[in-house]
Amino acid sequence: NITNLCPFDEVFNATRFASVYAWNRKRISNCVADYSVLYNLAPFFTFKCYGVSPTKLNDLCFTNVYADSFVIRGDEVRQIAPGQTGNIADYNYKLPDDFTGCVIAWNSNKLDSKVSGNYNYLYRLFRKSNLKPFERDISTEIYQAGNKPCNGVAGFNCYFPLRSYSFRPTYGVGHQPYRVVVLSFELLHAPATVCGPKKST
């Protein structure tokens, strides 16, 4: 009989979030998941669920729940959905087409922007091929755009693959930082360890 609440607040209220290319994953298990708490945590810009209804979450049980978190800019949030393409979905964080879970995003301009520009958040701009779903690539190998090998040196047709967002508070919403948490629900042929409040007794 599990009584402890799932530590969603640790994920959502973390002081620092990860850069999207090096997104963070927390496995959540053996706890009571009260998803209604999430609705009250922040004024969400996005709370979209796929393959599951957000209002039914509190009635369900899962084997595992994974919470992935990272920062992107406002106009990239739409890429965090099944079947999307674009720089983020292709080279940084890719959801599977049959994704079961929820994408939660909110504006973090007050936390993640600086007047002089916050350069701490990076994204991958160049990659030889698209990522597979939930693949994480943290390599910093020089990207070869031409025929000549780069031998690890940046220059003509040889690019450092990561680029930094420079978040400034005066930017338009599309270029402001957004914190994203992706909850993916895993149903294996194994005992369910993460249940809503109704199912945990």
Rank of each mutant, 00 (worst) to 15 (best):
residue 1 N to R: 08
residue 1 N to G: 09
residue 4 N to H: 11
residue 4 N to L: 08
residue 5 L to E: 10
residue 9 D to N: 12
residue 15 T to H: 09
residue 16 R to L: 08
residue 16 R to W: 08
residue 17 F to M: 06
residue 17 F to A: 03
residue 18 A to P: 15
residue 19 S to Y: 01
residue 22 A to Y: 07
residue 24 N to W: 00
residue 26 K to A: 07
residue 28 I to P: 01
residue 32 V to T: 15
residue 34 D to I: 06
residue 34 D to T: 05
residue 37 V to E: 09
residue 37 V to C: 12
residue 40 N to K: 13
residue 40 N to Y: 08
residue 41 L to P: 08
residue 42 A to W: 09
residue 43 P to E: 11
residue 44 F to M: 14
residue 45 F to R: 15
residue 49 C to S: 00
residue 49 C to N: 00
residue 51 G to A: 03
residue 54 P to E: 13
residue 56 K to M: 10
residue 57 L to E: 05
residue 59 D to A: 09
residue 64 N to V: 13
residue 65 V to H: 01
residue 66 Y to F: 11
residue 68 D to K: 01
residue 68 D to Q: 01
residue 69 S to Q: 04
residue 69 S to R: 01
residue 70 F to A: 01
residue 72 I to P: 01
residue 73 R to E: 07
residue 74 G to F: 01
residue 74 G to V: 01
residue 75 D to G: 06
residue 76 E to Q: 13
residue 76 E to P: 01
residue 77 V to N: 03
residue 78 R to C: 11
residue 80 I to R: 02
residue 81 A to K: 05
residue 82 P to T: 03
residue 84 Q to M: 14
residue 85 T to F: 02
residue 86 G to T: 04
residue 87 N to M: 14
residue 87 N to E: 09
residue 89 A to M: 01
residue 89 A to I: 02
residue 90 D to W: 04
residue 90 D to S: 08
residue 90 D to C: 05
residue 91 Y to E: 04
residue 91 Y to H: 08
residue 91 Y to V: 05
residue 92 N to A: 03
residue 94 K to Y: 00
residue 94 K to R: 08
residue 96 P to C: 00
residue 96 P to V: 00
residue 101 G to N: 00
residue 104 I to K: 00
residue 107 N to E: 06
residue 107 N to S: 05
residue 108 S to K: 02
residue 110 K to F: 07
residue 111 L to D: 12
residue 112 D to R: 00
residue 113 S to Y: 07
residue 114 K to G: 14
residue 116 S to D: 15
residue 117 G to P: 07
residue 118 N to Y: 07
residue 118 N to I: 04
residue 119 Y to E: 15
residue 119 Y to I: 11
residue 119 Y to M: 13
residue 120 N to A: 12
residue 121 Y to P: 05
residue 121 Y to R: 02
residue 121 Y to E: 03
residue 125 L to T: 14
residue 128 K to I: 08
residue 129 S to G: 12
residue 130 N to K: 15
residue 131 L to W: 02
residue 132 K to S: 09
residue 132 K to R: 13
residue 133 P to A: 09
residue 133 P to G: 07
residue 133 P to K: 02
residue 133 P to I: 01
residue 133 P to W: 01
residue 134 F to Q: 08
residue 134 F to K: 04
residue 137 D to F: 00
residue 137 D to Y: 00
residue 137 D to M: 01
residue 138 I to A: 10
residue 139 S to N: 10
residue 139 S to D: 08
residue 139 S to P: 02
residue 139 S to Y: 00
residue 141 E to G: 10
residue 142 I to H: 06
residue 142 I to T: 08
residue 143 Y to S: 07
residue 144 Q to G: 07
residue 144 Q to N: 10
residue 145 A to Q: 11
residue 145 A to V: 12
residue 147 N to A: 14
residue 149 P to S: 15
residue 150 C to D: 05
residue 151 N to H: 12
residue 151 N to D: 13
residue 151 N to G: 13
residue 152 G to I: 05
residue 152 G to Q: 10
residue 154 A to I: 11
residue 155 G to A: 09
residue 157 N to H: 10
residue 157 N to M: 11
residue 157 N to G: 14
residue 158 C to K: 05
residue 158 C to A: 02
residue 163 R to M: 10
residue 165 Y to E: 06
residue 165 Y to C: 03
residue 166 S to I: 09
residue 167 F to K: 04
residue 167 F to V: 05
residue 168 R to K: 15
residue 168 R to E: 13
residue 170 T to S: 14
residue 171 Y to H: 14
residue 171 Y to V: 14
residue 173 V to S: 12
residue 174 G to Q: 12
residue 175 H to W: 14
residue 175 H to D: 14
residue 179 R to P: 03
residue 180 V to W: 01
residue 180 V to P: 00
residue 181 V to F: 03
residue 184 S to Q: 10
residue 184 S to R: 07
residue 188 L to M: 13
residue 189 H to R: 13
residue 192 A to F: 13
residue 193 T to F: 09
residue 196 G to H: 10
residue 196 G to L: 10
residue 197 P to E: 12
residue 197 P to H: 14
residue 197 P to N: 15
residue 199 K to P: 12
residue 199 K to C: 12
residue 199 K to W: 14
